[in-house]
Amino acid sequence: MNESDSIIAFASWEERFRLGFDQIVRTAQPSQVLLYYFEEYADWTSDNRTHALNTCKTSASEFIEQKLSVATPADNWQRIRDDLRVSVTPGSRVTVDLTTMPREIIWNVFWMLDLIGCRIDYSYFRPAGYGDWLSREPQRPRLIYKLSGITRLKARTALVVLAGYDVDRTKQLMAFFEPEITLLGLQSLDKDPTNDQRMRKQREQAERFSQDGRVECFSLDAYAPDCGEEIVGQQIVGYLDSHNIVMSSLGPKPSAVSLYRLHRKHRATALAYAPSKEFSREYSRGFGEGVFGSV
């Protein structure tokens, strides 16, 4: 992991946020840390945010904390735009900690940093394990601002979903976008011992979905050095000219990096987010290995 001028992170109540944050501040030695959090989870994240503040004091990094809201994505985008315009300079190196950052925020931050002209690195820390359930109360899926692609008026939709552990979020995306074809990416080679069973459930559900439209499954490894970009790229290349492609990452966070990179290469593709209103207090446990790279 490189030294950085700034770190942008998103506070969570999970142990891996706190331990990962310490590690990246220690390694990157930033002059500035920008920490976002959702006001709806302010109580849950309070201890970890205080810890982050103290970590920054110890490392003499300027600490800026900013509140966002689950309910106002447009305000969040404008908040991030305004913050980064002030805090980040062109050409600087910024590390974005993806560990507990919602994918919509990840993509908003990447986009802004690209606009400003920064060098973007990322870090991600896995947990030791996951809870029985991760999220509930799905909200309406939405396309990401400024990353919503270029829609051709006559083309049908091809939906790319990099599956996670919540089967219903995959179904929800399919029900919402009603694609002609869904390309379902299943995480392989994962250290989480429950991964294979969960991906099997995704595949079984996919076979049931296929009565409502075509579903094709493929395997990828989001923890590969390219975050699975090449494999996903191979899947979509045959549909770039014929379909409007909408892509969503529900699996390991590094897959959000690969989809962002693919969007940058193929600006007509759209990125979509499937929000949830409620997250589990026991979302994850423990602290696992870190993954680092550049966007």
Binding site: A74, W77, L143, S148, T151, L153
Partner: peptide, 13 residues
């Protein structure tokens, strides 16, 4: 109307 064009949200900005 169920197309990615309809689902674009940039107007909210």
């Amino acid at each position: 109307c169920n197309t990615p064009l309809t689902h674009k949200g940039e107007y909210q900005l």
